[in-house]
Amino acid sequence: MITFTLNGRKVETDAPPSARLLDVIRDEYLLIGTKEGCGEGECGACSIFVNNLLQNSCLIPIGSIEGAEIVTIEGIMESDQFKILDESYSEAGGVQCGYCIPGMVMASAALLAQNPHPSEAEIREGISGNLCRCTGYNMIVDAINLAAKKGDGLWQKK
């Protein structure tokens, strides 16, 4: 039995320790916002926070997260930060097929929390682990830039 916190709630799972966190999140807790694009840590579609750090959930065996704090896109959906990102992605037109987007939003939030006023180069680096095949990235870069401006002061808070 493995115990951890999922989006602020204490949960227990009896999935085998080798089960991928990605599958547990999706199949056991039915949280579909975390997507699988490659299963090999190469695309970032499965990005989540583990103890506040951006990680690929497809690479994490559930056995390794005992006691950890896991946050998925569903866990940030009600936050002010998410609202800003939502608006900015919409205004910048950063969403096409949408499959990479929850992961991109997680990566954007992680970047801005660390660096509330990133340069274009820093934004590109911040999302370089997240693949998007539709947009060519530029409108996503614009979205993050916009979110930095709109959410000025919001990102530092914890």
Partner: peptide
């Protein structure tokens, strides 16, 4: 003149179900 995309909400939140989510 651009308008908001029809499917933006479900996609940005990841709550729109693709086939593997069913």
């Amino acid at each position: 003149t651009s308008v908001p995309k029809k499917d933006h909400k479900g996609k940005v939140s990841g709550q729109l179900a693709y086939i593997s989510d069913l």
